[in-house]
């Protein structure tokens, strides 16, 4: 992880920051590839989905719904809801990504929760080289994992048996800890976490995480007025 006062962030430091998650992402890629087979995807389609959607939770949800016979519309809606958080994530990354439109488009595709989180360099600013290094590392892990899963099925067994699902919240915790310095951040963390938890039993998957943008909107507005 780079700090604002550390050496200037670059692509290889971004890649290094993503290393703790390369193995879990790879393992879940394998298990997605295996699931995609049973969802009726041909091998090409499964790999194409990982290459174009590149968002684990949405892909798992969509493939599970198809496997259960839920139909294309339900799978599509579930996937889009799960990925709706990429609008606010994209907005937060936008000031860091300059250049021609095709370049901004491609950089944006490397955004997943993990690459977004590790490319933060302080005060709500993000770095596009960190995003590139971390995003590409995770992209390749996910894509190669999916291809292996399609070819070899669940060769690695269930990633959850290895506890790999806990790797994601653990890394998010690592990235969150240094950002709890001020009181507003602590309030917003409490708000975002509690609102999301409260909505898990009530709202479709994806919505609870998306609602985490509400506490920052309220708190920022309040402090803006006071200032």
């Amino acid at each position: 992880m780079s700090r604002p006062d550390g050496p200037s962030p670059n692509r290889s430091s971004g890649a290094r920051a993503a290393v703790p998650l390369a193995a879990p992402v790879f393992a879940f890629g394998v298990s997605f590839g295996a699931l995609a087979e049973s969802a009726g995807f041909n091998p090409f389609l499964a790999v194409a989905m990982s290459a174009t959607t590149f968002a684990g939770s949405a892909q798992f949800a969509a493939a599970s719904i198809l496997t259960a016979g839920g139909g294309a519309a339900a799978a599509l809606i579930a996937g889009i809801l799960l990925n709706a958080r990429y609008i606010p994530i994209g907005i937060s990354l936008a000031p860091a990504i300059a250049g021609p439109v095709w370049k901004r488009f491609l950089y944006a595709q490397l955004a997943v929760d993990e690459s977004w989180a590790v490319s933060h360099i302080g005060d709500g600013r993000y770095d596009k080289d960190l995003l590139f290094g971390a995003g590409l590392t995770l992209y390749l892990s996910w894509l190669i994992g999916t291809a292996l899963g399609v070819v070899a099925g669940g060769v690695l067994g269930d990633p959850e048996r290895l506890g790999l699902d806990a790797a994601f919240p653990a890394l998010f915790l690592v990235l969150l800890a240094p950002r709890l310095g001020d009181r507003e951040a602590r309030w917003t963390v409490l708000g975002g976490g509690l609102v999301a938890l409260a909505l898990v039993p009530l709202a479709p998957a994806g919505v609870p995480i998306l609602t985490a943008v509400i506490p920052p909107l309220l708190i920022a507005r309040f402090t803006w007025r006071r200032a």
Partner: peptide, 16 residues
């Protein structure tokens, strides 16, 4: 908003 959105979204991702 973006400054606070990072921690908030991370908290939600961890919680969920």
């Amino acid at each position: 908003v973006v400054v606070l959105m990072g921690p908030s979204l991370l908290a939600a991702l961890i919680a969920v």
